[in-house]
């Protein structure tokens, strides 16, 4: 019995080790190549012949094509503003759907469900023309405003997750507050929000991640305005046919550079994420 358990345990650990190697290797390769000294794109060997930090240094002392610092700040600014806006939208809608009862509630939820089923960028062209009509595509800065609006505008529809969380906060807490004379608004701000740190963090992170990983909307709105590119378009540009020979290793350096802050953020808040998924009150 004991030996059998030992064998099973060892097998499990070996399996886990193999799997985690599979999961780590590509990441390792990215990091490795970002330090590769030889320029050019694909090589006939894996392990670099020499190592260098130039790929990173070049990113920041960029030439005209590659302006990594600029792209980074662009994305950061857009991410911060759209995070604030969309988190506000999501929390408002999900609280209303979870706690308040009114005539249109069920209808609103069904409409949200239906709207969610249309492919997101089916409306991209129309959004583009609406923004143009509003005069938001005139200059680069306005384009950034437009991008923030695009990222956060429809955010109110993604309320299901947070609503599910609010649903798990016992209603008796709210009722106790009403008895003490609190208005519903007070209850929302002073009681529900402080109790919902995990889901707020979750909402913030997902909203924050959006601009870093979106390529399509950013590309359509920014066009060829490379000064105002976000990271995603920038990195994509580096892999294009005419650039890949020059920027292959720098591309990986760029990947590492943006992965580190986001990964740290993600790992720090992972706990909140898991709590957010599983609800406020543990069974």
């Amino acid at each position: 019995m004991k030996t059998k358990r030992f064998i099973v345990n060892t097998a499990c650990h070996i399996l886990l080790a193999v799997l985690s190697v599979i999961w780590i290797l590509p990441i390792f390769y990215v990091v490795l190549t970002s330090f590769r000294a030889e320029s050019g794109s694909y090589k006939s060997y894996i392990w670099p012949r020499g190592f260098t930090l130039d790929n990173y240094i070049n990113l920041f002392h960029g030439n005209t094509n590659i302006n990594f610092t600029r792209w980074f700040t662009n994305t950061l600014v857009i991410a911060i503003f759209s995070t604030i806006l969309s988190a506000f939208f999501v929390l408002c809608v999900s609280y209303v759907m979870s706690r308040l009862r009114f005539k249109m509630r069920k209808k609103f939820m069904n409409i949200a469900l239906i709207l969610g089923m249309f492919p997101g960028f089916m409306s991209m062209i129309a959004v583009y023309y609406i923004l143009k009509g509003l005069g938001l595509l005139e200059t680069g800065v306005l384009k950034q405003v437009a991008l923030v609006l695009v990222y956060s505008g429809g955010a109110g529809l993604g309320f299901y997750m947070a609503k599910g969380f609010f649903d798990t906060i016992p209603k008796s807490i709210d009722e106790a507050a009403y008895i003490d004379g609190a208005t519903k608004w007070d209850t929302f701000v002073r009681i529900t929000i402080p109790l919902s740190k995990p889901i707020i963090t979750y909402t913030l992170i997902t909203a924050f991640m959006g601009p870093w990983v979106d390529y399509i909307f950013a590309k359509v709105i920014m066009g060829n305005d490379s000064q105002y590119y976000t990271i995603a378009i920038g990195l994509w540009t580096m892999l294009e046919q005419e650039f890949v020979e020059y920027y292959y290793t720098q591309f990986y350096a760029g990947c590492v550079m943006i992965s580190i802050p986001i990964a740290i953020l993600f790992l720090l808040t992972q706990k909140c994420y898991v709590e957010g998924v599983s609800g406020a009150v543990k069974g």
């Binding site: 999961w23 780590i24 995603a232 992965s259 790992l267």
Partner: peptide
């Protein structure tokens, strides 16, 4: 770790 890296990357 692989989730933490942006999907785009």
């Amino acid at each position: 770790l692989s989730v933490a890296v942006p999907q785009f990357v």
